[in-house]
Amino acid sequence: MGQWLLVLAYLTSVVGCALGLACTLQARNAATEGRRLRWLALAAVSIGGVGIWVMHFIAMLGFATPGLPVRYDIWRTVLSAVLAIGAVFGGLLVFGVRAGFAWWRLLVAGLITGLAVNLMHYTGMWALRVKGTISYQPGLVVLSIVIAVVAATAALWFTVGLDRLLPRLGAGLVMGAAVTGMHYTGMAAVRVHLDLSAPDPSGTEVFSFLFPVFILAAIAMAVPICAVLMAPGPEDRTPEAAPAPEPAQVP
């Protein structure tokens, strides 16, 4: 089951990230500021909500303490989704502009977006409750941060000026690798200290809220998918009007 969950989690992340990066490209080509912000909002929901948050909870289906309950704090779980979408939006706001490419924008956006992946993961883990305590190995936590930032930066770099499907898909594969790689590195850092004498943890089982999460994820993907499909391609965009020729001089 663990290997199937790994594949499903990765594919979910790839779809969400590739769709979000496609929206980011549309934002860079948007004609007005309002359209640019709407595209970036769709991108943040796709990447932060689906590519990061939904992927996290698919992967967490494989986490268990045999014979002992595992619960989740709903409000902290919701907070992790809000933080993921908000942080990704902030990173894309830096990078998803119409202005020409600038390395500082790419590096800052990659840093913010990579940290958004980590922020969601560790906030989501904060919502996790077991019969005992959870701690982390610092070295692997640092490594998970580095993986997310480097791969997120590379994925954003792939979107610069790319109007074709294969480069977009490649960027999604890279960013999906960032999210899943960070997740499983972060999980390798987890140290669970079970205490059989501790009270049973309060909260909700993960299977109790997976169905509404998948419904929301389907809606979150349907809207940007329709928007991207309906958006004009590079050959269909209206070119800027050329200046009118000067009237001929009558001798």
Rank of each mutant, 00 (worst) to 15 (best):
A18E: 08
G20D: 04
G20R: 04
L21A: 04
L21R: 00
A22E: 05
A22V: 03
A22C: 02
A22W: 00
C23F: 11
T24C: 07
T24E: 08
L25A: 07
L25S: 05
L25D: 01
A27Y: 15
A27N: 05
R28G: 13
R28H: 09
R28Q: 15
R28V: 11
N29M: 01
N29E: 12
N29V: 03
A31Y: 06
A31T: 11
A31V: 12
A31K: 08
A31Q: 11
T32Q: 03
T32Y: 08
T32W: 06
E33L: 11
E33F: 11
E33W: 06
R35Q: 15
R35G: 07
R35E: 15
R36A: 06
R36I: 13
R36S: 00
R36P: 00
L37T: 05
R38V: 10
W39S: 04
W39A: 03
W39K: 03
L40D: 06
L40T: 02
A41I: 05
A41C: 07
L42I: 01
L42W: 15
A44H: 05
A44L: 08
V45A: 10
S46F: 10
S46M: 01
I47H: 11
G48A: 12
G49H: 08
V50R: 09
V50I: 14
V50C: 14
G51Y: 03
G51D: 11
I52S: 08
V54P: 02
M55W: 01
A59R: 04
M60I: 13
L61N: 09
L61S: 07
T65G: 01
T65W: 01
T65K: 00
P66G: 06
P66D: 09
G67L: 13
G67M: 14
G67V: 14
G67A: 13
P69M: 11
P69D: 02
V70D: 00
V70E: 02
R71N: 01
I74R: 09
I74L: 15
I74S: 10
I74F: 14
W75T: 15
R76C: 10
T77N: 06
T77M: 05
T77V: 12
T77F: 04
V78H: 00
L79Y: 08
L79T: 15
L79V: 15
A81I: 06
A81L: 15
A81N: 03
